[in-house]
Design a protein around this nucleic acid. Structure first.
Length: 437
RNA sequence: GACCCGUUCGUCUAUCGGUUAGGACUCCAGAUUUUCAUUCUGGCAAGAAGGGUUCGACUCCCUUACGGGUCGCCA
């Protein structure tokens, strides 16, 4: 059997995480089964479609790394892949239904007459589900063609899945109740129904339905917030699916190797941005220093900071301190600019008594033969011993003097990157600030 | 309201009748002869409730509660 899945978004808004995960699961299933992944744009609602939304979908898919084998920009044997260009196909199928006597006109629109009997579907995730179509009040005959002549979702969706030989429809659980309708339509059309898998919805942290405006909802926001595509893909895969092992950090390739519909959950999952950040950090950690630097550079530039020749070393120093790429500018600013803001709380914590020690340290730094972070730390050690204090007592003031803050990279790395002249200058400036209050 | 799906630590989850119910995020406490958002160790924390079935139930069945979904000339 040839596996063919599809992602069929409508271009009426940005790509949101729910849609992205639906796309991901379809993509993963196709890739893991050696099948074909189709992208089809369901743009039948002219009033709500926008070019920007269509582009956002393409951009989002591309960013996530979900490439399609057939669809816009690629083509394929089952096109066109925009529903707005398939009217002739729909007309033909409509005529067939009409000839079969399954349609009737209602106020200018055309309705499909359901067979009034129980309809059972076998869902790959939800199992067997039966809806009783004898209850007409709950299942009114549906409009498939509007009075303006355009076709509605149920009809075009079903026709296209048939026309495009889709074997597996993986979609959100909000479509579960639509499936019996589609099954009836397919039967009337004389087609063979695809397999269905309805995946649970993604909810907000408070359990409400996730929708636009909710934090984390728009895929397009992730890149500029400093997330890696690999991390976002990894995280949303974990919403409603698990590897059944204790591992949870996966690349797209690893997900393909492990994915199965059987392992998809039935209960909706809540979106936890905190864990998404952690997943991002895990993926950041796996990056090489140069790759990390290349990804961080745009953020640094956007923050108005200079990018020196030794930027890779600067980025490397803060690499394991950040969860998001967008945190790099703040974390590395003191290594990139001459003017460093002093955190008043840190100044207060260091206290004026340290000023003398810092001056001694500055003198010791001047006496170092060949400057290096290692040598500078050794000098610090000597100054501390000579003064009768523990090295640790001197390290915090030094860190404060060099970076203006309490937290940051290893002191040796900072000293090496800053160089002798700047290190000494900051030491003396900080000592002056301490002395004057 | 009717119909459908669901319910394990606060969150994401493992468990497919017999486990001290495991892991991860968050949080807390230690450790890494400075710090740390890194790393390591440890800790807090769960089977919605009530009935069955069974020698035995988180696991199977029923009821209730709660959550979500659907009932459009939106998709």
């Amino acid at each position: 059997m040839t596996i063919r899945t599809r992602f069929a978004p409508s271009p009426t808004g940005y790509l949101h995480v729910g849609g992205a995960r639906t796309a991901l699961f379809n993509w993963l299933f196709a890739r893991s089964q050696g099948g074909t992944f189709v992208l089809r744009v369901e743009d039948t609602d002219e009033a709500r479609n926008t070019d920007a939304a269509r582009q956002a979908i393409f951009d989002g898919m591309e960013w996530l790394g979900l490439d399609w084998d057939e669809g816009p920009g690629i083509g394929g044997a089952y096109g066109p892949y925009f529903q707005s260009e398939r009217k002739g196909i729909y007309d033909a199928w409509f005529d067939k239904l009409h000839a079969a006597g399954r349609l009737y006109e209602d106020a200018g629109a055309w309705r499909f007459r359901f067979e009034r009997r129980p309809v059972t579907m076998r869902d790959l995730v939800c199992g067997e589900v039966t809806i009783d179509y004898r209850d007409e009040s709950n299942t009114p005959d549906m409009v498939i063609r509007r009075s303006d002549g355009s076709y509605v979702f149920h009809f075009v969706n079903v026709v296209d899945d048939l026309e495009m030989a889709i074997s597996h429809v993986i979609r959100g659980e909000d479509h579960l109740m639509n499936t019996p309708k589609h099954l009836q339509l397919i039967e009337a059309l004389g087609g063979v129904a695809p397999h269905y898998a309805h995946i649970p919805l993604i909810l907000n942290p408070d359990g409400s339905k996730m929708s636009k405006r909710d934090a984390g909802a728009a895929v397009g926001d992730y890149p500029r917030q400093g997330f890696l595509a690999a991390a976002v893909v990894n995280f949303i895969a974990l919403l409603g699916w698990s590897s059944k092992t204790e591992e949870e950090i996966f690349t797209l390739k690893e997900l393909v190797a492990r994915f199965s519909l059987e392992a998809v959950n039935r209960a909706p999952a809540r979106f936890d941005l905190e864990k998404c950040r952690w997943v991002n950090q895990q993926h950041l950690a796996k990056l090489s220093e140069s790759a990390f630097a290349a990804l961080a550079e745009p953020f640094v530039r956007q923050a108005g900071l200079p990018v020196p020749d030794h930027f890779v070393a600067v980025a490397a120093a803060v690499k394991d301190k950040v969860r998001l790429l967008s945190e790099v500018p703040d974390a590395a600013a003191f290594l990139l600019t001459e003017q460093i803001p002093l955190d008043e709380a840190v100044v207060a914590k260091v206290g004026g008594a340290a000023a003398g020690l810092l001056e001694k340290l500055a003198v010791a730094f001047e006496g170092i033969g060949e400057w290096s972070g290692h040598e500078a730390k050794a000098a610090l050690h000597e100054v501390a011993v000579a003064a009768g204090v523990k090295p640790g007592q001197l390290m915090f003031p030094l860190r404060a003097a060099l970076s203006g803050r309490a937290h940051g990279p290893d002191l040796g790395a900072i000293l090496g990157l800053l160089g002798r002249a700047r290190s000494i200058a900051r030491l003396r400036e900080f000592a002056r600030v301490l002395a004057h209050g």
